[in-house]
């Protein structure tokens, strides 16, 4: 069940230059039934001139404390206003949105997680969920700009972690696929979130390896719930909802089988 909920900020901290972690707690007795890795929420900036929720991926979910963790980059005025919140403040949130990763398809496999920049946060919840599945191996390869890393400790907890940096200051110099090739990582499936050029390269890589790739897409959104048709991506086949070759990233996605979308 999707809802607009007034959440309480319990923690906010800077993780790297322009990157913030924010924890939001649900009101007592108002928890969502299920939160899947790869799902997201719409966070409303506390500014009446800004109407639309900001889609931000779920980085961690703790059903015991009722807290969601988000990690976001300040990209504009909306995320800047979120970064200025303090513990005890309220943030309105639309959630939980999107499909998330299909864990059944990944269980028992060697799963390669690829995250680029601000595509890294959702990989933490995914790594945690997969690590709990028997026989499932997790290798996370994360790409950063430079040595200003974030979320590495969290990722190390759930599997092997390899790092690529654009400037070569940590790990492999280059992108995540350079690091994968350097370490000759073997995998049965790949999950990726990051900028479009990276996702295109991941699709090609998975095809060469003959393994499935599940990629998380991004697009400008308005409603976040499938009503406005603002957030579509081109699909290979006619989509069962739209009956044209467009799927809604907020509803059918954001996670898609790379072979089903034209990117």
């Amino acid at each position: 069940m999707k809802k607009k909920t007034t959440m309480t900020v319990t923690d906010i901290r800077r993780l790297a230059e322009g990157v913030f972690s924010m924890k939001l707690r649900y009101p007592e007795g108002d928890l969502p039934e299920e939160v899947k890795p790869g799902q997201f929420a719409g966070l409303y900036p506390n500014d009446p001139s800004k109407l639309l929720p900001r889609p931000i991926s779920i980085c961690r979910w703790d059903p015991d404390t009722g807290e969601l963790q988000f990690v976001f980059r300040v990209a504009g005025a909306g995320t800047a206003s979120l970064a200025a919140q303090r513990p005890g403040d309220s943030v309105d949130m639309l959630g939980i949105l999107g499909n998330g990763y299909d864990l059944e398809k990944l269980a028992g496999k060697r799963v390669l997680l690829l995250g680029g920049g601000i595509g890294i946060p959702p990989m933490v919840e995914l790594a945690a969920a997969l690590a709990g599945r028997p026989g499932t191996g997790v290798t996370a390869v994360m790409g950063y700009r430079n040595s200003d890393l974030f979320l590495t400790q969290e990722l190390e907890r759930y599997g092997n972690l390899l790092i690529a940096t654009e400037d070569g200051s940590v790990g492999t110099k280059g992108n995540v696929l350079d690091a994968v090739r350097e370490a000759s990582v073997r995998a049965d499936a790949v999950c990726a979130c990051g900028p479009m050029p990276m996702l295109r390269a991941v699709k090609k890589f998975a095809r060469e390896q003959g393994i499935p790739a599940y990629i998380s897409l991004e697009e400008r959104m308005a409603c976040g719930v499938g009503a406005c048709l603002g957030c579509v991506t081109k699909t290979v086949k006619t989509d069962s909802h739209s009956h044209v070759r467009n799927a809604r990233i907020c509803t059918e996605g954001p996670v898609f089988d790379a072979e089903e979308v034209e990117i």
């Binding site: 800004k50 109407l51 639309l52 400008r220 308005a222 406005c228 957030c231 579509v232 739209s242 070759r245």
Partner: peptide, 18 residues
């Protein structure tokens, strides 16, 4: 008949609206 609509980005926020 079905219409494909426009390419994305299809939406943008502006001051007090979209």
């Amino acid at each position: 008949k079905p219409w494909e609509g426009n390419p994305t980005p299809r939406v943008a926020e502006v001051y007090g609206g979209m």
